[in-house]
């Protein structure tokens, strides 16, 4: 089975629901007591699409200003960005735009942009219209999704779309940092799906980019 392994960074202001979104999808749960992320959290998940397995290495970053200077180490070499905002707070949508221009300046390779308007469960307090967000996503060549981590709505689409776009990205000759390999080998070498071994020399032979510093 062909396997595509990509790095995904989740960005957005504090309190928009980045961790809730990721935990809802990967951990299949929602907690009202989730505390602000300190630094960043790392998750992995696999999504099978047709005959390709997509392995996502998700870096869920902290939204607080004090962590801002550390974020570059998470988006460096990233193949996709989930840019999350809160539809009830307009400034969180603005800060998405700042993130996008920062990514455009600093990431050389093609990147999947996925804009996510979260908290549709608070639709009555909506401040960012679907049309405006959709228009913005079109402008930057990204996709727009709306979700509710609370009600578990729309989240699957975000991740599945990201996976599909990574597959098409893997066919782009400009993409060098995506790891693409035959998973027969990979199942032999890393039997645990949640554990990713960066020092697995055999898989890095197949990796054309030789990105040995995985977290940056």
């Amino acid at each position: 089975m062909r396997t595509v392994e990509g790095k995904v960074v989740v960005l957005g202001s504090q309190g928009v629901g980045k961790t809730s979104l990721v935990v809802r999808y990967i951990g299949k749960m929602f907690s009202h007591h989730i505390s602000p992320t300190i630094g960043a959290s790392f998750f992995t998940c696999n999504i099978n699409i047709d005959d390709t397995r997509v392995k996502l290495q998700v870096w869920d970053t902290a939204g607080q200003e004090r962590f801002r200077s550390m974020v570059p180490m998470y988006y460096r070499n990233a193949n996709a960005a989930l840019l999350v905002f809160d539809i009830t707070q307009y400034f969180t949508f603005n800060s998405i735009k700042k993130w996008v221009s920062e990514l455009e300046r600093n990431v050389d390779e093609p990147m999947v942009y996925c804009i996510v308007g979260n908290k549709t469960d608070l639709g009555t307090h909506r401040k960012v219209s679907r049309e405006e967000a959709q228009q913005y996503a079109n402008d930057i060549g990204g996709k727009y999704f709306e979700s509710s981590a609370l009600h578990d709505e729309g989240i699957e689409d975000v991740f599945v779309n990201t996976a599909m776009e990574l597959i098409s990205l893997s066919k782009d000759p400009l993409t060098r940092s995506l790891r693409i390999y035959d998973s027969v080998e990979s199942t032999l070498r890393s039997p645990s799906l949640t554990h990713y071994d960066p020092n697995d020399s055999s898989s890095s032979e197949i990796d054309p980019a030789q990105n040995s510093k995985q977290c940056c």
Partner: peptide, 29 residues
């Protein structure tokens, strides 16, 4: 920090923390 952070539970975290008595000037990771 561990006690007041539910967010450590579902994932592996990479957390900058400064230990004031050990070295107040810099973060450890």
């Amino acid at each position: 920090m561990v006690n007041s952070s539910e967010s450590f539970k579902p994932a592996e975290s990479w957390t900058p923390i400064c230990l004031p008595t050990f070295d107040a000037s810099a973060y450890m990771h």
